[in-house]
Each structure stands twice: as structure tokens, then as C-alpha cells.
Amino acid sequence: MTVSSPILRTVARFALPLSLVVSAIIFMQGHNLPGGGFIAGVLGAAGAAIYLLAFGVERAARIQWWKFAVVGLCISLLTGTVQALLGYGFMNHTIWHIGSYHLPTATFFDLGVYLIVLGTLMTIFVELGMEDR
């Protein structure tokens, strides 16, 4: 369904890129400050959904959102599996030290969560939006 309001369209035009940037920031800071893959995914989906409401479902439907979810699941499971193959046990995360930077392997798991939340929510939104057409 399309809510054809010029105000919404104008808002949506800015809301989408903004929400994507903010969701990336929230995702990255998630390990130390409020945030994380789940919330960032919901935020990204919210931005995209407002865009969907303003400009109609067709543009959003061009993207196969379910693939995001499946790829995300693969990333998450692979993170756990790689740890298992390295001998730490399935889903037992470690921290990579790259110079002075600490990268917990849990970040990859969280990236999977992000993609799953974004992909699943958008799949549902797009499919529901396609229903009345």
C-alpha cells in the first residue's frame, strides 16, 4: 500500500540513508555501547519500511530480501563452525588482535544477526505490501 503524502515522501527520502548510516554505527558500537546486530537490523528495516510506505512496494520488491536472511544465517553458523574447527568449540568466540585493535569474532556472528533481522522484516513487509495489489 502507498501512503501518497508529499511530507512522508520527503521524510522517507532522508530517512532511508540516515537510518542505514545510523544502523551501521549502532551495529559497530554494539559491543561496548547500546546497540548491536538486532537493534541495528530493526532500525535499518524501519528506515526501508518507511521508504516502502512512501514510494510503494515495487521498488523495495526488486530486492530479494529473503536472501539477506539466508546469507546472514550462513555467516552466523559459519562463525560458530570455524571456531569449532579451530578447536574452540561451536559458538565459542575468541578475540582477534589486529595491531592494537581488538576484534571479537562475535562481531561476525552479530553481522549475521543484523542481516537476518533486516532480511526477515523486509521480506514480511514486502510480501504484505504486495498482497493488496
Partner: peptide, 19 residues
Amino acid sequence: AGGANAVNVIIVDFRAIDT
């Protein structure tokens, strides 16, 4: 787990199998 946000660390690390 190298994270100060305990909530998120629980979700993605301590209880990752649940997640």
C-alpha cells in the same frame, strides 16, 4: 568477550547457541 555492553555480549557470545 572483549565487550563492555554486557547485554549484547550475552546475546552474541555467552549465550550464542541460544541466539
